[in-house]
Design a protein around this nucleic acid. Structure first.
Lengths: 341, 341
DNA sequence: TTGTTTTGTGGGAACGTTCCCAGCTCTTTG
DNA sequence: CAAAGAGCTGGGAACGTTCCCACAAAACAA
């Protein structure tokens, strides 16, 4: 029942463990005949190298942590896929922890990962500055961190992978305008995450350019749940602020907003067009389906994993920032007869 | 930069590693004064025990695997939370792998976990029988497996945690009938997963009891995605089979079906009421919100983790089956004036 | 032939812990 | 007052690997 070890093979073949090891690892200086015998015996006894022993020997845990703000959306699951596609192949395990949009929980998650002795961490943060000092400490202590999606301020010299939020947000605003929208709300999400301000900036630039920017339509939310989206729109309606479309920071905000509108009997997209920034299956799970900026989530994960491995293999290697291309997908939620003709 | 080890402390305090170890673990036979000195030095030098070394010593990897069929739904994420709530506290890491509803991928995932030397596996399977032999082999080789949600046939003596599918499905059918529904479709999901047949049986029992069972309304789907739900309903409409409500095996099937109906201009719940079996945030992310049987997912995870630890600590301990209580939640998708008055 | 290189093998330290055992000193006991 | 016990400490094996080193035998060079 106990798994076979090198020593078992050693006893069984009357060879030293050194020889066995060399044969198995296909090192030089091993007689072909001996090698064959060892391989056969290993096969027969079902020998599997003990990874824990290897980890101790090499001073690695062969595991990395992934810390994400939420998991009600399949966003993180898609990123995870990319990470695993790259890391599982080379024997790395990934341990995922969810912060529930709370910087304190994020803190707990990070210290837990440190206790787990992970070789590195991939992080999508909750709050741009709150835990910045902790990130620095962890890296100081020798565990590299790579960021994606929501990244920390420039003060921290780290590798990261993002999408071009500004441009994509601009393009989405242009799209709404091209369908005839004039009063475009932006649900911008909390200003404590960089992407929120980036996307808002893109939106604002285009609206200003078209001379239809109105600060009243730029609404900050405290979070990014369905509930936050709903509350924001409820507030707008209560205040009597007119709007003909909504561009939301995330799928969840957009959907929360949309469902409240539908509940109130307001038609989408006829009366209010809606779109968002994301890239998850959620945007196609509602009716009408959401137009959105789709991010290449799997590639994002893969890139982050690659950057992390660079740091793990050579801790003094330069930090790099990867900017991936997102693409706009137009769906039912913004499909109305073009406003211009 | 290198982390402090026992040996470092030993050198620093001119004490043997044995004594240091005893002091740290608070064993008997240690002088209070020595203990204090050791603790202080450990604190000062930032000593953290090396988990890999401990794992080697104790012959464990202190990690378990979680294999789930899908992650587009927050179902698995919720279960994961329960598992982690229990396991992270006692120093266990959990590695999650997704099978994408493919038994072959599930196979790969399981063998990967075995290579990772996990101490145990928690599994929500894709297909009731396909990998049954593999499960047996893995357990034979010493890695316990605990099942939840979708469980294997009775041939396998394993611990598992489920909900009372039959009863809950019956109650949901009764609910639909009480709102006046007479032509109730059941989207039953693939018959290769036990819950599908369980829930279908509950549904059928009630409809037969009320004399409104029609085999035409019992439709098997090949999978459980949005797409499968949509296709099933499309087919029903094409065949001209009349129905006034749908009870779906999962949120995803229900939503896929609902969105197609809405797309066709059919009103929900006025013309067709819809409900499902699940317990995820997905059911409240659509409009109208879905009535559904909500499973206690976090508790499910916690229970599975507990059962797994029992097996890990004593591999000969008896297998147990836990049946948890789900509860019905009525929402907009079935809210129409009661049919009886 | 003798010296040098190549080829193959075994011994054993090292990774960072725990824990058994031996041994020392000091107190208690009959 | 010797014997027994309690309190405390150190030595070192063990967990399962890899890999450096030493060494023997064979192959090659001169």
């Amino acid at each position: 029942m106990k798994p076979t070890t090198l020593k078992d093979l050693s006893r069984h073949l009357s060879l030293s463990t050194s020889t066995i090891s060399r044969a198995l690892l296909n090192h030089k200086n091993i007689h072909p005949e001996t090698r064959k015998r060892v391989l056969e015996a290993a096969e027969m006894l079902g020998y599997q190298p003990n990874t824990t022993a290897l980890n101790l020997r090499y001073g690695k845990s062969k595991s990395i942590g992934l810390v994400v703000p939420e998991m009600v959306t399949p966003f993180s699951a898609n990123v995870l896929k990319g990470i695993q596609a790259f890391l599982n192949n080379i024997g790395y395990k990934v341990i995922i922890l969810v912060s529930d949009e709370s910087p304190d929980t994020e803190r707990d998650n990070l210290t837990l990962l440190e206790r787990f002795n992970v070789d590195g961490i991939i992080l999508n943060l909750c709050h741009e500055t709150y835990n910045q000092a902790l990130y620095a400490q962890i890296m100081e202590r020798g565990t590299p961190i790579v960021f994606f999606d929501r990244i920390p301020g420039n003060a921290l010299d780290v590798s990261k992978v993002i999408v071009n939020d500004h441009i994509q947000a601009s393009l989405m605003a242009e799209h709404l305008i091209s369908t005839g929208c004039k009063r475009i709300v932006h649900l911008m999400g909390p200003p404590t995450v960089r992407n929120a301000t980036e996307r808002a900036a893109g939106y604002q630039r285009i609206l200003v350019k078209h001379g239809i920017f109105d600060p009243e339509l730029m609404v900050k939310t405290h979070g990014t749940t369905f509930g936050h989206g709903k509350e924001a729109v409820k507030e707008l309606l209560k205040k009597g602020i007119a709007f003909d479309s909504i561009f939301a920071f995330t799928d969840t905000l957009a959907i929360g907003a949309m469902n409240y509108l539908l509940e109130q009997g307001i038609r989408v997209p006829e009366e209010v067009a809606i779109c968002s920034f994301s890239g998850t299956e959620l945007s196609t799970s509602v009716f009408p389906q959401l137009s959105s900026v789709e991010q290449p989530l799997k590639e994002m994960g893969e890139a982050a994993a690659r950057l992390l491995m660079d740091k793990i293999q050579d801790s003094s290697s330069d930090s790099r920032t990867l900017v991936l291309d997102a693409k706009l997908i137009y769906r039912g939620s913004t499909a109305r007869g073009s406003g211009k003709h």
